[in-house]
Amino acid sequence: MDAVLFFLFAGIALAGAINLIRESHPIYSALSLVAVMGALAGLYLMLGAEFIAVVQIIVYAGAIMVLFVFVLMLVNAAPEVKLDRSKMAKNVGPPLLTLLLVEIVAVLRGKYPTSDLVHPSLLSGDNTRQIGKLLFSKFLLPFEVTSILILVAIMGAVVLGKRRPDDSR
């Protein structure tokens, strides 16, 4: 059962990701991304990471994707114009990518059974409560400092996006 579900979700995620790059219209790409996000949430659930799965749905598939689609509709995005792509990326990219994937699979599958792959302390379960506790005790500082990061990002959007007095000419 686990294996069936895993291959189902993994298949959807991969197909969505490939379709995302293949489609020429941004709306279809955005909708493929929704499928990827949903399938990933399913994979997280299977790993026992309920919190991450729910956050994935609410934040990514929900808020961020709605924003994406909304902006695409607002600017009435047309199908992308295909430009001449770099020859090197076209010819050297796929073989290198295949090599990397084969290497990763070979290293991780050949020598080691999957159960030893991850440190045992990380498989205790009960992770929603753990996250809640850690976020406001041990990881209080990163939690707070992230607000500076968000502030900088907001300021960047304003600085780069706002109309300047002399832009009207």
């Binding site: 990163p142 400092v145 992230t146 990061l149 900088v152 300021m155 960047g156 600085v159 780069l160 300047r164």
Partner: peptide
């Protein structure tokens, strides 16, 4: 690593914006 990563992001994102300051 968590703190290092957040520090890196703050530094990088500010620099990206500063790079595009001559709009």
């Amino acid at each position: 690593l968590v703190m290092i990563f957040i520090g890196l992001e703050i530094s990088s994102i500010s620099t990206y914006i500063l790079t595009g300051y001559r709009r």
